[in-house]
Amino acid sequence: MTFDELVQYMSPELFVPNLEAREKSAVLEELTTAVVEGSKVKDHALILEMLRNREQLGSTALETGVAFPHGRSLAVTRLTILVARSSDGVDFDSEDGKPTHLFFLLLAPPHDTGNFYLQALGKIAEAIRRKDVRTSLMKAVEFDEVVQILQEAS
């Protein structure tokens, strides 16, 4: 999978420059609301329940200050990727206990063959492994810049 393919599933409507929520549960709710407002996904409750269950399985926050809430749901018809940031950071139960600043929400339909969304997740996780990439992502003003930074990093 190329990054150009991935970008098709992102959009300016699915970019939250600064989250208001300050704790994990509220962040999941705010992310779900943003995805319902910015995409064709309609069912807030189903998405939120699926994301909460996924976090029960294990936090989706990595030690790099980035989290990847994700999963498949019947309420989703195509891969949908939302990017969100929190300048103050949120305790998202990461292994190292450090706050999470960057969020990539990935939602996929149940019939996602070959776990396309996991490939997408891996691709983004790889791109943001570099600290300078994460720093630039936090500074980007427009959605286009976010895409450009990710493209150059991949």
């Binding site: 269950n53 029960q56 399985l57 294990g58 936090s59 989706t60 990595l62 030690e63 990847f68 292994e95 776990n115 996991l118 997740l121 891996g122 996780a125």
Partner: peptide, 19 residues
């Protein structure tokens, strides 16, 4: 297979019982 992919990316999955 999925567990291996997750672990490779750095995710831990301790909460199967909760699910």
């Amino acid at each position: 297979a999925t567990r291996a992919k997750y672990e490779e990316m750095g995710f831990q999955l301790p909460g199967l019982d909760q699910l």
